[in-house]
Design a protein around this nucleic acid. Structure first.
Length: 423
RNA sequence: GGAGGGGUGGCAGAGUGGUUGAAUGCGGCGGUCUCGAAAACCGUUUCGGGCCAUUUCGGUCCGACGAGGGUUCGAAUCCCUCCCCCUCCGCCA
Protein backbone atom coordinates (compact mmCIF):
# COMPACT_ATOMS: atom_id res chain seq x y z
CA UNK A 1 0.00 0.00 0.00
CA UNK A 2 1.31 3.39 -0.95
CA UNK A 3 1.00 6.54 1.13
CA UNK A 4 -2.00 8.07 -0.57
CA UNK A 5 -1.89 11.27 1.39
CA UNK A 6 1.60 12.23 0.32
CA UNK A 7 0.91 11.15 -3.24
CA UNK A 8 -2.17 13.33 -3.32
CA UNK A 9 -0.12 16.35 -2.34
CA UNK A 10 2.59 15.73 -4.90
CA UNK A 11 1.83 12.90 -7.31
CA UNK A 12 4.72 13.41 -9.69
CA UNK A 13 7.51 11.50 -7.89
CA UNK A 14 5.26 8.49 -7.35
CA UNK A 15 4.04 8.61 -10.93
CA UNK A 16 7.61 8.68 -12.22
CA UNK A 17 8.62 5.83 -9.94
CA UNK A 18 5.66 3.69 -10.94
CA UNK A 19 6.33 4.37 -14.59
CA UNK A 20 9.54 2.39 -14.18
CA UNK A 21 7.35 -0.57 -13.31
CA UNK A 22 4.65 0.18 -15.86
CA UNK A 23 2.03 0.97 -13.26
CA UNK A 24 1.61 4.73 -13.68
CA UNK A 25 -1.83 4.60 -15.32
CA UNK A 26 -3.39 2.90 -12.35
CA UNK A 27 -2.11 5.70 -10.15
CA UNK A 28 -4.07 8.34 -12.04
CA UNK A 29 -7.19 6.25 -11.80
CA UNK A 30 -6.57 5.88 -8.10
CA UNK A 31 -6.22 9.62 -7.60
CA UNK A 32 -9.50 10.12 -9.41
CA UNK A 33 -11.30 7.73 -7.09
CA UNK A 34 -9.67 9.38 -4.13
CA UNK A 35 -10.93 12.77 -5.35
CA UNK A 36 -14.45 11.40 -5.73
CA UNK A 37 -14.34 10.09 -2.19
CA UNK A 38 -13.26 13.44 -0.87
CA UNK A 39 -16.21 15.08 -2.58
CA UNK A 40 -18.67 12.67 -1.03
CA UNK A 41 -17.24 12.59 2.44
CA UNK A 42 -17.92 16.19 3.58
CA UNK A 43 -21.55 16.01 2.44
CA UNK A 44 -22.04 12.80 4.33
CA UNK A 45 -20.37 14.11 7.44
CA UNK A 46 -22.50 17.20 7.42
CA UNK A 47 -25.59 15.00 7.37
CA UNK A 48 -24.27 12.94 10.22
CA UNK A 49 -23.50 16.05 12.25
CA UNK A 50 -27.09 17.16 11.82
CA UNK A 51 -28.38 13.76 12.82
CA UNK A 52 -26.32 13.96 16.00
CA UNK A 53 -27.69 17.41 16.80
CA UNK A 54 -31.34 16.58 16.23
CA UNK A 55 -30.91 13.31 18.06
CA UNK A 56 -29.80 15.23 21.09
CA UNK A 57 -32.77 17.59 20.79
CA UNK A 58 -35.09 14.62 20.77
CA UNK A 59 -33.43 13.21 23.86
CA UNK A 60 -33.82 16.59 25.55
CA UNK A 61 -37.51 16.86 24.65
CA UNK A 62 -38.18 13.33 25.85
CA UNK A 63 -36.46 14.03 29.13
CA UNK A 64 -38.69 17.03 29.63
CA UNK A 65 -41.70 14.93 28.76
CA UNK A 66 -42.50 17.05 25.71
CA UNK A 67 -43.72 15.97 22.32
CA UNK A 68 -40.95 15.00 19.84
CA UNK A 69 -42.97 13.79 16.86
CA UNK A 70 -41.91 16.61 14.59
CA UNK A 71 -38.11 16.16 14.85
CA UNK A 72 -38.54 12.39 14.73
CA UNK A 73 -40.34 12.70 11.43
CA UNK A 74 -37.54 14.90 10.16
CA UNK A 75 -34.96 12.38 11.25
CA UNK A 76 -36.76 9.57 9.53
CA UNK A 77 -36.27 11.35 6.24
CA UNK A 78 -32.67 12.29 6.97
CA UNK A 79 -31.84 8.72 7.90
CA UNK A 80 -32.92 7.42 4.52
CA UNK A 81 -30.90 10.00 2.66
CA UNK A 82 -27.83 9.26 4.74
CA UNK A 83 -28.11 5.56 4.05
CA UNK A 84 -27.97 6.18 0.32
CA UNK A 85 -24.95 8.43 0.63
CA UNK A 86 -23.19 5.93 2.82
CA UNK A 87 -23.76 3.20 0.29
CA UNK A 88 -22.32 5.36 -2.46
CA UNK A 89 -19.28 6.25 -0.40
CA UNK A 90 -18.75 2.60 0.46
CA UNK A 91 -18.77 1.72 -3.24
CA UNK A 92 -16.17 4.36 -4.06
CA UNK A 93 -13.98 3.36 -1.16
CA UNK A 94 -14.16 -0.30 -2.08
CA UNK A 95 -13.16 0.52 -5.62
CA UNK A 96 -10.34 2.74 -4.41
CA UNK A 97 -9.01 0.15 -1.98
CA UNK A 98 -9.18 -2.61 -4.52
CA UNK A 99 -7.17 -0.59 -6.98
CA UNK A 100 -4.74 0.62 -4.33
CA UNK A 101 -4.09 -2.95 -3.24
CA UNK A 102 -2.84 -3.84 -6.72
CA UNK A 103 -0.25 -1.07 -6.94
CA UNK A 104 3.31 -2.19 -6.26
CA UNK A 105 5.81 -0.44 -4.03
CA UNK A 106 7.80 2.47 -5.43
CA UNK A 107 11.19 1.27 -6.64
CA UNK A 108 14.27 2.73 -4.99
CA UNK A 109 15.94 5.34 -7.22
CA UNK A 110 19.12 3.24 -7.06
CA UNK A 111 17.44 0.10 -8.39
CA UNK A 112 18.62 -0.50 -11.98
CA UNK A 113 16.34 0.16 -14.93
CA UNK A 114 14.77 -2.69 -16.81
CA UNK A 115 11.96 -5.22 -16.66
CA UNK A 116 13.53 -8.66 -16.60
CA UNK A 117 15.98 -10.88 -14.87
CA UNK A 118 18.49 -10.03 -17.57
CA UNK A 119 18.45 -6.38 -16.56
CA UNK A 120 19.83 -7.15 -13.11
CA UNK A 121 23.21 -5.58 -12.47
CA UNK A 122 25.98 -7.81 -11.14
CA UNK A 123 27.59 -6.14 -8.13
CA UNK A 124 30.36 -8.66 -7.44
CA UNK A 125 31.51 -12.22 -7.86
CA UNK A 126 32.93 -13.96 -4.83
CA UNK A 127 34.79 -17.26 -4.38
CA UNK A 128 36.66 -19.58 -6.69
CA UNK A 129 34.66 -21.59 -9.16
CA UNK A 130 35.87 -25.17 -9.04
CA UNK A 131 37.73 -26.68 -12.02
CA UNK A 132 36.84 -30.25 -12.87
CA UNK A 133 39.03 -32.57 -14.97
CA UNK A 134 36.18 -35.01 -15.35
CA UNK A 135 32.62 -34.99 -16.61
CA UNK A 136 30.57 -32.94 -14.16
CA UNK A 137 27.44 -34.64 -12.78
CA UNK A 138 24.40 -32.70 -11.66
CA UNK A 139 22.81 -32.94 -8.23
CA UNK A 140 20.10 -35.33 -9.36
CA UNK A 141 22.62 -37.71 -10.85
CA UNK A 142 24.70 -37.68 -7.72
CA UNK A 143 21.67 -37.72 -5.47
CA UNK A 144 20.03 -40.67 -7.20
CA UNK A 145 23.28 -42.65 -7.28
CA UNK A 146 23.75 -42.31 -3.53
CA UNK A 147 20.15 -42.67 -2.49
CA UNK A 148 19.94 -39.03 -1.39
CA UNK A 149 17.13 -37.97 -3.68
CA UNK A 150 14.17 -40.07 -4.80
CA UNK A 151 11.89 -38.35 -7.27
CA UNK A 152 10.04 -41.13 -9.08
CA UNK A 153 8.33 -42.42 -6.00
CA UNK A 154 7.68 -38.83 -4.95
CA UNK A 155 5.83 -38.08 -8.14
CA UNK A 156 3.78 -41.24 -7.70
CA UNK A 157 2.92 -40.20 -4.19
CA UNK A 158 2.46 -36.47 -4.68
CA UNK A 159 2.90 -35.54 -8.34
CA UNK A 160 5.63 -33.75 -10.21
CA UNK A 161 7.99 -31.37 -8.47
CA UNK A 162 8.08 -33.32 -5.23
CA UNK A 163 11.05 -35.18 -3.84
CA UNK A 164 12.12 -37.48 -1.06
CA UNK A 165 15.30 -36.19 0.55
CA UNK A 166 17.12 -39.09 2.17
CA UNK A 167 20.17 -40.34 4.00
CA UNK A 168 23.24 -38.14 4.26
CA UNK A 169 21.52 -35.14 2.69
CA UNK A 170 19.01 -35.10 5.52
CA UNK A 171 21.86 -34.97 8.00
CA UNK A 172 23.39 -32.15 5.98
CA UNK A 173 20.09 -30.27 6.04
CA UNK A 174 19.88 -30.57 9.80
CA UNK A 175 23.45 -29.39 10.25
CA UNK A 176 22.90 -26.45 7.90
CA UNK A 177 19.85 -25.35 9.82
CA UNK A 178 21.64 -25.58 13.13
CA UNK A 179 24.60 -23.69 11.72
CA UNK A 180 22.59 -20.85 10.25
CA UNK A 181 20.33 -20.47 13.29
CA UNK A 182 23.42 -20.18 15.49
CA UNK A 183 24.78 -17.51 13.19
CA UNK A 184 21.50 -15.58 13.13
CA UNK A 185 20.98 -15.80 16.85
CA UNK A 186 24.44 -14.29 17.30
CA UNK A 187 23.24 -11.49 15.02
CA UNK A 188 20.42 -10.72 17.43
CA UNK A 189 17.65 -12.51 15.59
CA UNK A 190 15.06 -14.53 17.47
CA UNK A 191 14.69 -18.04 16.06
CA UNK A 192 11.07 -18.82 15.18
CA UNK A 193 9.17 -21.86 13.98
CA UNK A 194 6.11 -20.09 12.59
CA UNK A 195 2.71 -21.30 11.42
CA UNK A 196 2.79 -22.42 7.80
CA UNK A 197 -0.98 -22.26 7.39
CA UNK A 198 -2.27 -18.71 7.51
CA UNK A 199 -5.40 -16.71 6.78
CA UNK A 200 -5.67 -14.39 3.83
CA UNK A 201 -4.82 -11.36 5.95
CA UNK A 202 -1.08 -11.95 6.30
CA UNK A 203 -0.84 -12.80 2.60
CA UNK A 204 -2.55 -9.55 1.74
CA UNK A 205 -0.36 -7.73 4.24
CA UNK A 206 2.85 -9.00 2.74
CA UNK A 207 1.71 -8.19 -0.80
CA UNK A 208 1.26 -11.76 -2.08
CA UNK A 209 -2.46 -11.10 -2.37
CA UNK A 210 -4.07 -10.13 -4.62
CA UNK A 211 -1.24 -10.23 -7.16
CA UNK A 212 0.37 -13.64 -6.66
CA UNK A 213 -2.55 -15.72 -5.55
CA UNK A 214 -1.83 -18.26 -8.26
CA UNK A 215 1.40 -19.18 -6.49
CA UNK A 216 -0.29 -20.10 -3.23
CA UNK A 217 -1.77 -23.44 -2.16
CA UNK A 218 -5.21 -23.11 -0.65
CA UNK A 219 -7.11 -25.16 1.89
CA UNK A 220 -10.59 -23.89 1.00
CA UNK A 221 -12.51 -25.90 3.54
CA UNK A 222 -10.75 -24.08 6.35
CA UNK A 223 -10.09 -20.82 4.51
CA UNK A 224 -6.36 -21.23 5.06
CA UNK A 225 -3.34 -20.96 2.83
CA UNK A 226 0.06 -22.65 2.86
CA UNK A 227 2.81 -20.07 3.05
CA UNK A 228 5.38 -19.90 0.28
CA UNK A 229 7.86 -18.40 2.75
CA UNK A 230 7.88 -17.78 6.47
CA UNK A 231 8.19 -14.10 5.62
CA UNK A 232 4.39 -14.17 5.62
CA UNK A 233 3.93 -15.45 9.15
CA UNK A 234 6.87 -13.46 10.52
CA UNK A 235 5.44 -10.24 9.13
CA UNK A 236 2.15 -11.05 10.84
CA UNK A 237 3.92 -11.24 14.19
CA UNK A 238 3.45 -7.49 14.72
CA UNK A 239 0.46 -6.77 12.51
CA UNK A 240 -1.96 -4.25 13.96
CA UNK A 241 0.50 -3.10 16.60
CA UNK A 242 1.85 0.28 17.61
CA UNK A 243 5.38 -0.25 18.85
CA UNK A 244 7.61 2.22 20.64
CA UNK A 245 10.95 3.34 19.22
CA UNK A 246 12.81 1.28 21.77
CA UNK A 247 11.08 -1.88 20.52
CA UNK A 248 12.98 -1.47 17.24
CA UNK A 249 14.76 -3.02 15.53
CA UNK A 250 13.03 -6.39 15.91
CA UNK A 251 14.75 -9.24 14.09
CA UNK A 252 13.54 -12.79 13.53
CA UNK A 253 14.82 -15.94 11.88
CA UNK A 254 11.97 -18.20 10.80
CA UNK A 255 12.56 -21.84 10.00
CA UNK A 256 9.75 -23.47 8.08
CA UNK A 257 8.69 -25.59 5.20
CA UNK A 258 7.58 -23.53 2.20
CA UNK A 259 4.95 -24.42 -0.38
CA UNK A 260 4.71 -23.02 -3.89
CA UNK A 261 2.44 -24.02 -6.72
CA UNK A 262 4.93 -22.81 -9.33
CA UNK A 263 2.06 -21.93 -11.63
CA UNK A 264 3.45 -20.37 -14.77
CA UNK A 265 6.78 -22.16 -14.41
CA UNK A 266 5.70 -25.15 -16.49
CA UNK A 267 8.66 -26.68 -18.24
CA UNK A 268 11.23 -24.58 -16.38
CA UNK A 269 13.77 -26.23 -14.12
CA UNK A 270 11.98 -29.54 -14.28
CA UNK A 271 15.05 -31.58 -13.38
CA UNK A 272 15.87 -32.41 -9.78
CA UNK A 273 15.01 -30.38 -6.72
CA UNK A 274 15.89 -26.91 -7.97
CA UNK A 275 12.27 -25.87 -8.33
CA UNK A 276 9.88 -27.97 -6.26
CA UNK A 277 6.52 -27.45 -4.60
CA UNK A 278 7.87 -27.98 -1.11
CA UNK A 279 11.17 -27.06 0.51
CA UNK A 280 12.61 -25.95 3.82
CA UNK A 281 14.00 -22.51 4.38
CA UNK A 282 15.35 -20.21 7.08
CA UNK A 283 14.20 -16.67 6.50
CA UNK A 284 15.33 -13.43 8.14
CA UNK A 285 12.77 -10.72 8.84
CA UNK A 286 13.36 -7.26 10.34
CA UNK A 287 11.12 -4.51 11.63
CA UNK A 288 13.11 -1.26 11.72
CA UNK A 289 12.77 2.50 11.91
CA UNK A 290 12.38 4.01 8.43
CA UNK A 291 15.74 5.78 8.55
CA UNK A 292 17.45 2.45 9.23
CA UNK A 293 16.08 0.28 6.44
CA UNK A 294 18.86 0.98 3.96
CA UNK A 295 21.49 -0.04 6.50
CA UNK A 296 19.46 -3.07 7.53
CA UNK A 297 19.22 -4.15 3.92
CA UNK A 298 23.02 -4.09 3.67
CA UNK A 299 23.24 -5.96 6.91
CA UNK A 300 20.96 -8.79 5.77
CA UNK A 301 22.85 -9.07 2.51
CA UNK A 302 26.14 -9.22 4.37
CA UNK A 303 24.86 -12.06 6.57
CA UNK A 304 23.76 -13.99 3.49
CA UNK A 305 27.16 -13.57 1.91
CA UNK A 306 28.97 -14.56 5.06
CA UNK A 307 27.03 -17.81 5.21
CA UNK A 308 27.71 -18.64 1.58
CA UNK A 309 31.40 -17.96 2.20
CA UNK A 310 31.35 -20.26 5.23
CA UNK A 311 30.01 -22.98 2.98
CA UNK A 312 32.66 -22.20 0.36
CA UNK A 313 30.01 -21.72 -2.30
CA UNK A 314 31.07 -19.46 -5.20
CA UNK A 315 28.41 -16.84 -5.83
CA UNK A 316 27.64 -13.47 -7.29
CA UNK A 317 25.41 -10.66 -6.02
CA UNK A 318 22.92 -9.05 -8.37
CA UNK A 319 20.85 -5.89 -8.01
CA UNK A 320 17.35 -6.62 -9.35
CA UNK A 321 15.90 -4.27 -11.98
CA UNK A 322 13.02 -1.99 -11.00
CA UNK A 323 10.55 -3.70 -13.33
CA UNK A 324 11.44 -7.17 -12.06
CA UNK A 325 10.85 -6.48 -8.35
CA UNK A 326 8.01 -8.25 -6.59
CA UNK A 327 5.03 -6.12 -5.62
CA UNK A 328 6.29 -5.25 -2.17
CA UNK A 329 10.03 -4.67 -2.74
CA UNK A 330 11.52 -1.28 -3.40
CA UNK A 331 14.96 -2.81 -3.83
CA UNK A 332 16.15 -6.37 -4.01
CA UNK A 333 19.50 -8.13 -4.05
CA UNK A 334 19.85 -11.78 -4.99
CA UNK A 335 22.80 -14.03 -4.27
CA UNK A 336 23.30 -16.54 -7.02
CA UNK A 337 25.37 -19.65 -6.45
CA UNK A 338 27.58 -21.17 -9.09
CA UNK A 339 25.95 -24.34 -10.42
CA UNK A 340 28.58 -26.35 -12.33
CA UNK A 341 26.14 -28.59 -14.21
CA UNK A 342 24.37 -25.55 -15.63
CA UNK A 343 27.55 -23.59 -16.11
CA UNK A 344 25.92 -20.50 -14.64
CA UNK A 345 24.85 -18.74 -11.48
CA UNK A 346 21.39 -19.47 -10.05
CA UNK A 347 19.44 -17.76 -7.26
CA UNK A 348 19.97 -19.18 -3.78
CA UNK A 349 19.02 -16.21 -1.65
CA UNK A 350 17.04 -13.03 -2.04
CA UNK A 351 16.89 -9.96 0.13
CA UNK A 352 14.29 -7.22 -0.11
CA UNK A 353 13.71 -3.85 1.44
CA UNK A 354 9.94 -3.46 1.39
CA UNK A 355 10.10 -0.03 3.11
CA UNK A 356 6.66 0.91 4.49
CA UNK A 357 4.70 -1.04 1.86
CA UNK A 358 3.98 -4.15 3.91
CA UNK A 359 3.82 -2.16 7.15
CA UNK A 360 0.90 -0.11 5.81
CA UNK A 361 -0.97 -3.19 4.68
CA UNK A 362 -0.25 -4.96 7.96
CA UNK A 363 -0.98 -1.83 9.99
CA UNK A 364 2.33 -2.11 11.79
CA UNK A 365 3.44 1.21 13.26
CA UNK A 366 5.69 2.75 15.89
CA UNK A 367 6.06 6.07 17.70
CA UNK A 368 9.31 7.85 16.84
CA UNK A 369 9.02 9.73 20.15
CA UNK A 370 7.01 8.68 23.22
CA UNK A 371 4.10 11.06 22.54
CA UNK A 372 4.40 11.29 18.76
CA UNK A 373 1.90 10.16 16.17
CA UNK A 374 2.40 6.55 15.08
CA UNK A 375 3.98 6.04 11.65
CA UNK A 376 4.49 2.85 9.63
CA UNK A 377 7.73 0.94 10.33
CA UNK A 378 9.90 -0.45 7.57
CA UNK A 379 10.17 -4.18 7.01
CA UNK A 380 12.81 -6.26 5.29
CA UNK A 381 13.19 -9.92 4.50
CA UNK A 382 16.00 -12.10 3.28
CA UNK A 383 16.73 -15.78 2.77
CA UNK A 384 19.30 -17.07 5.21
CA UNK A 385 19.22 -20.64 3.96
CA UNK A 386 17.20 -22.16 1.14
CA UNK A 387 17.93 -25.79 1.93
CA UNK A 388 17.23 -27.40 -1.45
CA UNK A 389 19.24 -25.03 -3.56
CA UNK A 390 22.06 -24.94 -1.04
CA UNK A 391 22.26 -28.73 -1.18
CA UNK A 392 22.49 -28.50 -4.94
CA UNK A 393 25.34 -26.02 -4.72
CA UNK A 394 27.17 -28.07 -2.10
CA UNK A 395 26.90 -31.40 -3.91
CA UNK A 396 27.75 -30.08 -7.34
CA UNK A 397 30.63 -27.81 -6.31
CA UNK A 398 32.04 -30.37 -3.88
CA UNK A 399 31.95 -33.40 -6.17
CA UNK A 400 34.94 -35.58 -7.00
CA UNK A 401 35.56 -37.87 -9.98
CA UNK A 402 34.27 -40.88 -8.07
CA UNK A 403 30.98 -39.18 -7.32
CA UNK A 404 31.76 -38.51 -3.67
CA UNK A 405 31.18 -35.06 -2.21
CA UNK A 406 33.56 -33.12 0.03
CA UNK A 407 31.78 -31.03 2.69
CA UNK A 408 32.99 -27.60 3.83
CA UNK A 409 34.75 -27.17 7.17
CA UNK A 410 31.90 -25.77 9.28
CA UNK A 411 29.70 -28.77 8.45
CA UNK A 412 32.51 -31.12 9.38
CA UNK A 413 32.98 -29.25 12.63
CA UNK A 414 29.26 -29.71 13.16
CA UNK A 415 29.79 -33.46 13.17
CA UNK A 416 29.42 -34.50 9.55
CA UNK A 417 32.01 -36.55 7.69
CA UNK A 418 34.49 -34.73 5.48
CA UNK A 419 33.26 -36.70 2.51
CA UNK A 420 29.86 -38.19 1.83
CA UNK A 421 29.02 -40.69 -0.91
CA UNK A 422 32.42 -42.37 -0.89
CA UNK A 423 32.58 -46.11 -1.65
C1' G B 1 -16.36 -32.85 17.82
C1' G B 2 -20.04 -31.68 22.31
C1' A B 3 -21.58 -28.10 26.41
C1' G B 4 -21.08 -23.41 28.63
C1' G B 5 -18.89 -18.33 29.53
C1' G B 6 -16.76 -13.97 27.53
C1' G B 7 -14.57 -9.94 24.02
C1' U B 8 -15.15 -2.07 26.38
C1' G B 9 -9.18 2.84 26.38
C1' G B 10 -1.68 0.67 28.00
C1' C B 11 -3.84 -2.72 31.97
C1' A B 12 -7.90 -3.76 35.42
C1' G B 13 -12.97 -2.86 35.36
C1' A B 14 -18.20 -0.08 35.25
C1' G B 15 -21.81 0.67 31.81
C1' U B 16 -28.52 -3.15 28.84
C1' G B 17 -31.61 2.16 23.94
C1' G B 18 -30.82 9.16 24.52
C1' U B 19 -24.76 14.96 26.64
C1' U B 20 -20.83 7.67 27.59
C1' G B 21 -15.22 8.21 23.33
C1' A B 22 -16.80 6.08 27.56
C1' A B 23 -17.26 6.22 35.32
C1' U B 24 -13.56 4.39 38.73
C1' G B 25 -8.74 2.33 39.88
C1' C B 26 -3.74 1.27 38.29
C1' G B 27 0.07 2.60 35.05
C1' G B 28 2.29 6.72 31.90
C1' C B 29 3.38 12.02 31.23
C1' G B 30 3.55 17.27 33.19
C1' G B 31 3.29 20.28 37.54
C1' U B 32 2.99 21.78 43.02
C1' C B 33 5.65 20.49 47.49
C1' U B 34 11.09 18.86 48.72
C1' C B 35 18.13 19.81 49.39
C1' G B 36 16.61 15.41 46.62
C1' A B 37 13.26 11.39 46.58
C1' A B 38 8.84 9.03 48.41
C1' A B 39 3.95 10.24 49.83
C1' A B 40 0.11 13.67 48.95
C1' C B 41 -2.34 17.04 45.77
C1' C B 42 -3.53 19.34 40.76
C1' G B 43 -3.62 18.60 35.60
C1' U B 44 -3.08 15.39 31.46
C1' U B 45 -3.23 10.60 28.91
C1' U B 46 -6.97 6.11 22.31
C1' C B 47 -6.83 5.59 17.02
C1' G B 48 -8.37 6.82 12.09
C1' G B 49 -10.49 10.25 8.56
C1' G B 50 -12.38 15.15 6.40
C1' C B 51 -12.38 20.46 6.47
C1' C B 52 -10.05 25.15 8.15
C1' A B 53 -5.43 27.24 9.72
C1' U B 54 -0.19 26.65 9.36
C1' U B 55 6.50 29.30 10.39
C1' U B 56 4.87 26.81 15.08
C1' C B 57 0.96 25.57 18.82
C1' G B 58 -3.84 24.37 16.73
C1' G B 59 -9.39 24.61 15.72
C1' U B 60 -13.69 21.98 14.07
C1' C B 61 -16.61 17.98 12.41
C1' C B 62 -17.21 12.64 11.36
C1' G B 63 -16.14 7.50 12.50
C1' A B 64 -14.46 3.50 15.78
C1' C B 65 -16.58 -0.22 22.53
C1' G B 66 -13.68 -7.88 18.36
C1' A B 67 -15.49 -7.58 12.60
C1' G B 68 -19.54 -7.03 9.31
C1' G B 69 -24.76 -6.48 8.55
C1' G B 70 -29.83 -5.37 10.67
C1' U B 71 -33.76 -3.00 13.95
C1' U B 72 -34.56 2.28 15.61
C1' C B 73 -35.68 9.19 15.16
C1' G B 74 -31.29 7.50 18.05
C1' A B 75 -27.09 1.44 19.44
C1' A B 76 -21.26 -0.02 23.59
C1' U B 77 -26.39 -1.35 25.06
C1' C B 78 -31.54 -5.15 21.04
C1' C B 79 -31.23 -8.97 16.61
C1' C B 80 -28.25 -11.90 12.81
C1' U B 81 -23.55 -13.78 10.71
C1' C B 82 -18.44 -14.30 11.33
C1' C B 83 -13.69 -14.00 14.17
C1' C B 84 -11.06 -14.51 18.70
C1' C B 85 -10.29 -15.94 23.94
C1' C B 86 -11.53 -18.91 28.39
C1' U B 87 -13.70 -23.38 31.19
C1' C B 88 -15.41 -28.55 31.14
C1' C B 89 -15.95 -33.24 28.29
C1' G B 90 -14.24 -36.25 24.09
C1' C B 91 -10.22 -37.22 20.67
C1' C B 92 -5.08 -36.72 19.76
C1' A B 93 1.30 -35.78 17.86
Amino acid sequence: MLDLRSIREDPEPARAALRRRGAADALDELLQLDGRRRELLPELEEGRARRNRVSEEIAQLKREGKDADQPIAEMRELGGALKEREAELARVEAERDELASTLPNLPDPDAPDGDTENDAVTLREVGERPEFDFEVRDHLDLGTAHGWIEMEKASEASGSRFAYLMGDLVMVEMALIRLVLDLLRDEGMTPVVPPVLVRGGPLYGTGFFPGEREMIYEVPRDELFLVGTSEVSLAALHAGEIMSARDLPRRYAGYSTCFRREAGAAGRDTRGIFRVHQFDKVEMFSFVEPSQSGAEHERLLQIQERFLQMLEIPYRVVDIAAGDLGASASRKFDCEAWIPSQDRYREVTSCSNTTDYQARRLDCRYRPEPEAQPVPVHTLNGTALAVGRTLIALTENGQAADGSVRLPGPLVEAGLPEVIGAE
